[in-house]
Design a binder for these strands. Structure first.
Lengths: 162, 162
DNA sequence: ATAAATGCAAATATTTTGCAAGCGC
DNA sequence: GCGCTTGCAAAATATTTGCATTTAT
């Protein structure tokens, strides 16, 4: 699906959501949706804020960003993550299901896909619970940190031997 | 494994960790470990703080709680979650692997076990990444909220008809 | 004796809230 | 015009940090 196509579709989904829930269709809300769907990968409120100011040339307050993000989450157009300090968000419509790999040392977050894993999660029978979405976070040491650690260890051992 | 037995074991693991990393073995650290392993399920810093003061009659500052929790996480004795606002923690030694079901409406967190799911996750081949642990969060509507929503909907429909 | 750890308070960071003004319906 | 929404600033919350004091080694 083309990018513009996706934007049109999510705008429509959002409109339906706003109508169904008696919320107003303000220009701020659509500008925020537009900006979010221009961002690839994760973002936090600060990044979204500067993105709106600079790229889209649209001025909104942080309060409105927080308010609107909640609507978008409820409309199932955005998902929220809480890795590091500040909450991270990502667009969710028309995105491949993916999982998150987080390095406990440098904090780097990498996405990966795995169909078997996805099937296993989606086919899990949940008793008395209506699944809406899920997040799998896998923690460990990334290859970069692992290499750095090995180098450090070698150099420490050398020191001790001296 | 008995509760006292577990506490002895984790104390020993912690001691080894502290020794291996050149950290001091302070009474605060052991008291915090002891308290954490007396708590079932999740806790946050505030709950741990009052738990220490009241139950264990041990006075520690929040700063020390935060510091010590980091050590315990590194020693693989505690896991950190970030659902709601404040970080949630749980003891991890000798606990069954489990997953988390979170109601997006009332925020209630329920644990559940599922071996097939666990196997699927643990057998996932990760390229250039050393797995240490993982968390699966499943979001949706719990049965209680679902029932409440149905009742509300019925009552709204009745209103409209009048 | 020395450096690490603690407690306290202040600082920081993030998110929420109250309220006046603006604007969608 | 009504009342939801916005922007701003203040407040609330959670976590980190600096520093003087204590204490493990």
């Amino acid at each position: 699906m083309e990018s513009q196509n996706v934007k049109d579709t999510v705008r429509q989904i959002f409109t339906e959501y706003l109508n169904a829930n008696g919320h107003r269709k303000t220009p701020e809300r659509y500008a925020i949706l537009e900006t979010i769907y221009s961002i690839d990968g994760h973002f936090d409120i600060d990044m979204l804020y500067s993105q709106m100011m600079n790229q889209e040339n649209f001025r909104v307050s942080r309060a409105t960003l927080y308010n609107t993000i909640i609507l978008l989450i409820n409309a199932r157009l955005v998902i929220k993550h809480q890795f590091g300090n500040s909450s991270q968000y990502e667009k969710s419509y028309n995105r491949e299901t993916h999982h998150h790999q987080i390095c406990t040392q440098c904090g780097k977050v990498t996405e990966f896909q795995n169909e078997a894993l996805q099937n296993a999660i989606e086919n899990t029978k949940l008793s008395r619970f209506q699944l809406s979405h899920y997040s799998l976070y896998i923690y460990g040491i990334c290859s970069k940190c692992d290499r750095a650690n090995r180098r450090k260890k070698v150099s420490n051992n050398n020191k001790k031997e001296k």
